[in-house]
């Protein structure tokens, strides 16, 4: 009613001027909001699911309850797989970050065709379908007796984590002045001391970002993990896979919620910290 009244009161010429030269049509906002809902829907729906006491995957929830969380934190199978995932992801991230950072620093100093080729080779897992890697790794690891072992999981996940470290450390090195290395050396520092006192602090954010992504990649990896699993050792994504295929186990909603919320926090916190740090500069 009020909209009609104000439209009548206002002369049409003025409204047109208010609209600007190049307005955004309303339908574009509608489409944008619908697409945004589509993008975030799966992440959001697991949260209400996890507070339901039902025995199936029914949505919307009918019986509010914390039973899925109680089950998750008391079932040795779920807890064990969570522990395995943390262990594998931590070790794989450590390994990938160490070798990936070294490689990024080395490749930053190297030029030529061979260096470019090696960089592509190290990045290859990012474009190779996970299933192709999983099948090849599975068959070779069978011969090497690495299937179902902690070592097997760690090296496989570390290898696919290397590209993330390489990319983020390389981009951090973009603003790094190589003359600092010689300055440090000329002042008598060993290469290792130079790395710890000069290089590492300057590229710390790239290293941390790479380590986080290597951790999350391993923690969430399911295809290779499905092939490397054994009754004795499996990670949480594999247990989640079992809970929708072999058994209908709604405990998955609790684990899915925990993963979604913790990964979101891990990724958002550095971003927010960066935004806060940047804000004073923008304000001037």
């Amino acid at each position: 009613m009020t909209a009609v009244a104000s439209r009548a009161a206002r002369p049409p010429a003025r409204r047109r001027r208010d609209r600007g030269v190049d307005p955004i049509p309303a339908w574009q906002w509608v489409v944008g909001v619908l697409v945004a809902v589509y993008l975030v829907l799966p992440a959001l729906i697991v949260i209400p699911m996890s507070f339901d006491g039902g025995l199936t995957f029914q949505f919307p929830p009918t019986k509010p309850s914390f039973i899925q969380y109680v089950r998750f934190f008391t079932d040795p199978v779920w807890l064990g797989s969570l522990g395995n995932s943390f262990l594998v992801a931590a070790l794989a991230s450590l390994l990938a970050t160490t070798v990936g950072t070294a490689a990024a620093i080395g490749l930053h100093q190297l030029t030529g065709r061979l260096a470019r080729f090696v960089r592509t080779l190290l990045m290859i897992s990012i474009v190779t379908p996970a299933i192709v890697i999983a099948v090849a790794v599975y068959i070779s690891f069978l011969q090497w007796h690495l299937v179902g072992t902690l070592l097997g999981y760690v090296v496989a996940h570390a290898a696919i984590g290397v590209p993330f470290v390489l990319v983020s450390v390389t981009s951090a090195l973009g603003g790094f002045d190589p003359r600092l290395l010689r300055a440090s050396a000329s002042l008598g520092a060993s290469p290792w001391r130079t790395f710890l006192r000069v290089t590492a602090p300057l590229i710390a954010r790239g290293i941390v970002t790479g380590a986080i992504f290597a951790f999350v990649t391993s923690f969430d990896e399911v295809v290779i993990a499905l092939f490397l699993r054994s009754p004795l050792f499996q990670t949480m994504p594999v247990q989640m896979y079992n809970s929708v295929t072999a058994e209908i186990d709604p405990t998955i909603s609790a684990s899915a919620t925990l993963v979604v919320v913790s990964v979101t926090l891990v990724i958002l916190i550095p971003q927010l910290a960066r935004l806060r740090r940047r804000r004073p500069e923008e304000a001037r």
Partner: peptide
């Protein structure tokens, strides 16, 4: 030498199986 560990890891775990 800095690049070598990464090459070894990726070669042993991905390239050799492929």
């Amino acid at each position: 030498l800095l690049v070598l560990p990464a090459i070894v890891l990726v070669t042993a775990v991905l390239l050799v199986p492929l």
